[in-house]
C-alpha cells in the first residue's frame, strides 16, 4: 500500500493555507491528523497532487472556554480532548465519545476538525456535534463564516464546506444535566454499528430538554427533533423512551455492510439509543 506522489505544503497560518487552496485548486487536499486520508491515499482511493498539512498552524490548536461557550481548535487531537479537565467539566460527553473513537495511537493523531470536516458517516464527532448544537467556523478567501453542525452535512463526504475553505474551530455551549454516548462496534478500532449521543436536562422529575443524534446510521449524522421532543415533558419512562427511539429509528437510513443488514442496524439503533437515554437520564 503505497501512496501516489504529491507535493507537500506546510503553511504556518490559516491565510497561507487558504492561499494554497486557491492557488492549487482541485489537486489540493488539506490534511489534519491524517488517519482517514492517509490510508485512503495508500489504497490509492484518494489521489491528489498537493497535500496541505495544517499541523504547524498554532492558531488551530487548543481548547478555550469563555462565558460558558467552549471553543475547540480544529487541530486539537482526540487525546487532548480526553485529557482536558476543563472540557470534561464543561461538556463531559465529549470525553466519553472521544474515548470510543478508534484506538489510543489514532487518538493521539486524530483531530476533532478532521473528524467533523471530512464528512465520513462513520465518524463519531459529527453526530456528537449535532447533539451539542455546535457551530463550525469556516475560514475562506472571503473571511470567516459560521455553519451549524446540524446544517453542515449533505451526504457522505459532501458538506457545506467550500473547496477553498478550512474548518478552523468548533464551538458549543457547555452542557448541564445528563449526558451519554453509546456505541456498538465489533471491536476497538471499528466504526459504529450504531451509536448515539444524548443530552438531557431535568426539572422537577421531568425532562426539561433533550437532544439526540445518531452516528453511522445514514449517509450523514442524524439529529432527531422528534426523538428529543418525545422525551421533553415526560418522566423519561418506558413509554417515552419507546416513543423517542421509534422517532429516531424512523429518521435513520442505514446501509447494509459487513456489520449487518439494514433490519439489524435499525433494531440495534433503537436499543442503543434507549440505553443512551437511560444512562443520560440517570445522570441528569
Amino acid at each position: 500500500m503505497i501512496p501516489g506522489s504529491f507535493e507537500y505544503h506546510q503553511p504556518h497560518d490559516v491565510e497561507g493555507a487558504i492561499r494554497l487552496l486557491q492557488d492549487l485548486g482541485d489537486e489540493a487536499r488539506v490534511v489534519a491528523g491524517g488517519h482517514s486520508l492517509i490510508p485512503m491515499m495508500k489504497l490509492r482511493m484518494a489521489d491528489l497532487g498537493h497535500l496541505i498539512d495544517l499541523r504547524r498552524i498554532e492558531a488551530l490548536k487548543g481548547i478555550s472556554i469563555d462565558g460558558g461557550t467552549v471553543t475547540i481548535g480544529a487541530m486539537t487531537t482526540q487525546h487532548e480532548l480526553i485529557e482536558s479537565k476543563m472540557l470534561a467539566d464543561a461538556a463531559p460527553i465529549v470525553r466519553e465519545a472521544a474515548l470510543q473513537i478508534a484506538d489510543p495511537q489514532v487518538r493521539y493523531c486524530g483531530t476533532i476538525g478532521g473528524n467533523v470536516a471530512n464528512g465520513d458517516p462513520g465518524n463519531d464527532m459529527p453526530g456528537l456535534m449535532q447533539c451539542l448544537d455546535a457551530t463550525y467556523t469556516l475560514a475562506g478567501p472571503d473571511g470567516e463564516r459560521q455553519v451549524a453542525a446540524r446544517e453542515f452535512y449533505e451526504a457522505a463526504y459532501f458538506t457545506a464546506r467550500e473547496d477553498e475553505e478550512i474548518l478552523t474551530s468548533i464551538s458549543f455551549a457547555g452542557t448541564a444535566g445528563g449526558y451519554a454516548y453509546e456505541k456498538q462496534k465489533r471491536k476497538i478500532g471499528d466504526y459504529a454499528t450504531a451509536a448515539s449521543a444524548v443530552l438531557i436536562t431535568k426539572n422537577g422529575g421531568q425532562c426539561a430538554s433533550a437532544s439526540i443524534a445518531m452516528t453511522n446510521l445514514a449517509d450523514t449524522p442524524v439529529f432527531s427533533d422528534e426523538a428529543s421532543d418525545a422525551l421533553v415533558g415526560t418522566s423519561v419512562d418506558d413509554a417515552a423512551i419507546k416513543a423517542a427511539t421509534a422517532a429516531a429509528v424512523a429518521a435513520i437510513d442505514p446501509a447494509e455492510d459487513n456489520r449487518g443488514p439494514v433490519e439489524f442496524k435499525k433494531h440495534v439503533a433503537g436499543v442503543i439509543l434507549a440505553r443512551t437515554v437511560e444512562r443520560a437520564w440517570s445522570r441528569a
Binding site: Q184, R186, T193, R259, G260, F264, H267
Partner: peptide
C-alpha cells in the same frame, strides 16, 4: 457468531 448473526438467531426464535 458476529453481532448480527447472533441477533438474527434471536430474531428468528421470536426473542424480539
Amino acid at each position: 457468531h458476529d453481532h448480527w448473526r447472533i441477533w438474527k438467531t434471536a430474531n428468528q426464535l421470536g426473542l424480539h
